Amino acid sequence: MVSNLHEDAPAKINLHLKVTACRSDGYHELDISFWPLYALSDQIELEFRPRCLRLACNDKNLPEHGNICLTAAEKYATATGIEPEWFFNLHKNIPLAAGLGGGSSDAAAVLRMLNRHYKVLSAEQLAELAVSIGADVPYFLDPRPAFATGIGEKLFYPEFKLPELHVLLVNPGFPVSASWAYRHLNPSRIGPGNNAMLDSLKQGHLDKIAAVVANDLEEPVLRKFPLLTIIKQTLLEHGATAACMSGSGPTLFALTHSRVQQEKIRDTIGRIFPFCRIFVC
């Protein structure tokens, strides 16, 4: 009998997100950085059952039909010719539609788990399969600090020593559609990227990193949800070195100089905005 398989699916933030061009297929060209947050991860268990392709989840807001995990499994089965015998149990910790990459990370975890077991696809083939599922999925095949261009699939991994970052997440408890955020992007913000974040991480000074934290999608989302502006201002007023929206939002992240400062801000935000979900990473 084959033992059950287990995989963690970490969240991510984008220290910077620059939209560099629109594409005719509806996607956008990006200059973007990924920073994984293993302290906030979903867990996926794979149980082998004959002639089965099912998923159970602790979050009832995530229906089985159309779930990205099953999409990933179906595409893997088609690409390899393997008959599914897979029952997935997904334990969600990452908020849904939050700008933290939860769904993409789950899908990549399914691909990693299946390919580790069957050993059929090369790394290149797996990456090609991943991008057919979603723009962020290739990143999560190997979730470590990275920079990306294209739609997020052309990845570059820094070889220098990276600084430790104290990250605080504040999720307001409502979802934001990524497609909505991109549709409402101010066209004047579209333009070439630069190496500012790469250079700042190489120097390793938090103040320099904070100075180049940015997200082109933040403006339309904060305009639609003024609460996010209030939360962001509160983070900065109480000592965060940087505060910004991750991905297409609505989750905000804050960078702090120390764990002590991070915990003080966490307590303050929790008291002022008790409806928010707060994560220390």
Rank of each mutant, 00 (worst) to 15 (best):
N186K: 09
F156P: 02
F156L: 09
S188V: 11
P192V: 11
H184Y: 14
L185I: 06
L162H: 07
G193S: 11
H184V: 01
F160H: 13
S177I: 10
Y157H: 06
L155D: 04
N186E: 14
A196Q: 14
P192C: 12
W180Q: 03
S179Q: 15
V167A: 04
K161R: 12
F160G: 05
R189V: 04
F174H: 02
E153W: 06
V176G: 01
Y182K: 00
N194C: 10
N186I: 08
P172F: 00
P175Y: 05
V170F: 08
S188P: 04
S179I: 15
N195H: 14
P187V: 07
L168Y: 01
P163W: 15
S177E: 13
L168N: 00
N194P: 06
N171C: 06
F160E: 10
L168Q: 01
P192I: 11
H166N: 14
E164S: 12
F174C: 06
M197A: 14
H184D: 09
L169T: 03
P175C: 03
L162I: 12
N186D: 15
N186Q: 09
M197P: 04
L155I: 12
S177Q: 11
K161C: 07
E153A: 12
L165A: 10
N171D: 14
G191N: 08
E159I: 11
E164K: 15
R183I: 03
Y182L: 00
E159P: 01
N186A: 13
M197D: 11
F174A: 04
P158E: 11
P175L: 03
A196E: 12
N195M: 15
P192T: 14
A181V: 03
N195K: 15
L165M: 08
Y182M: 01
G173T: 05
A181S: 13
L168S: 02
V167P: 01
V176M: 02
E153T: 08
A196P: 08
F156D: 13
V176A: 01
G193T: 10
N194Y: 08
P175H: 05
L155C: 04
P187L: 08
V167T: 12
P158Y: 03
P158F: 02
S177F: 09
N171S: 01
P172T: 00
E153N: 07
L168E: 01
S179A: 15
L185C: 09
P187R: 09
F156N: 12
A196M: 12
E164R: 14
P187I: 10
N195G: 15
L165H: 02
P187N: 10
I190P: 07
L185W: 04
G193Q: 05
V167F: 08
N186G: 07
Y182H: 00
E159T: 12
H166V: 11
H184T: 06
N194K: 04
R183K: 15
Y157M: 03
A196R: 15
W180D: 02
Y157T: 07
A196C: 12
